[in-house]
């Protein structure tokens, strides 16, 4: 591997690691049947997206975007980009809002179905559907 490729790989390794984490989260959301675990997977996905954004804002040799108290900014000091930080702060708070709403929905689902497994919920739904069909068929049969 020549030095150009190596540099490219090192410069992009952060993105690839975050994508790996994102895909782990996505896998949990898609493949696992437990609803609480799905929420955890969603959180992992979300946090890795945050990391991706923050890594975009990082400048080599930069420091945290906080000025000295007397506001005399030294032009030689490099600050990292504060804008991604602001956006991600907002996103974290919105994320906890969606998480809590999801957890509240899980509690309601558990109350109705007495389970938080996707498979069992689907079974119960199918059973209810079948009994409803059977009932309506019998009702129309009695009419004719």
């Amino acid at each position: 591997m020549d030095s150009g490729t190596l540099e490219f790989v090192i410069g992009h390794l952060n993105y690839w690691l975050f994508i790996l984490l994102m895909m782990t989260g996505l896998y949990i959301v898609v493949a696992k049947g437990n609803l609480v675990k799905k929420i955890v997977g969603l959180n992992i996905f979300q946090t890795s997206v945050f990391m991706l954004y923050i890594s975009i804002g990082k400048v080599t040799g930069g420091t945290a975007p906080i000025f000295p108290l007397d506001m005399k900014v030294d032009p030689d000091v490099v600050y990292s980009n504060p804008l991604p930080h602001v956006l991600i702060l907002t996103a974290i708070v919105v994320g906890i809002a969606t998480t809590s709403l999801g957890l509240a929905l899980i509690i309601r689902i558990r109350e109705e179905y007495h389970t938080i497994e996707e498979d069992q919920i689907a079974e119960i739904e199918n059973a209810v559907l079948k009994s409803e069909q059977w009932a309506s068929e019998r009702a129309t049969g009695e009419h004719s």
Binding site: S55, G57, H85, I96
Partner: peptide, 24 residues
């Protein structure tokens, strides 16, 4: 990665509040 504000929000909200909510 120089995002100190994000770090302490994440520590408080992600590790604190959401863990408590999930345990609840």
């Amino acid at each position: 990665m120089d995002a100190v504000d994000v770090a302490f929000t994440e520590a408080a909200v992600g590790a604190g509040i959401s863990t408590v909510l999930m345990l609840g």
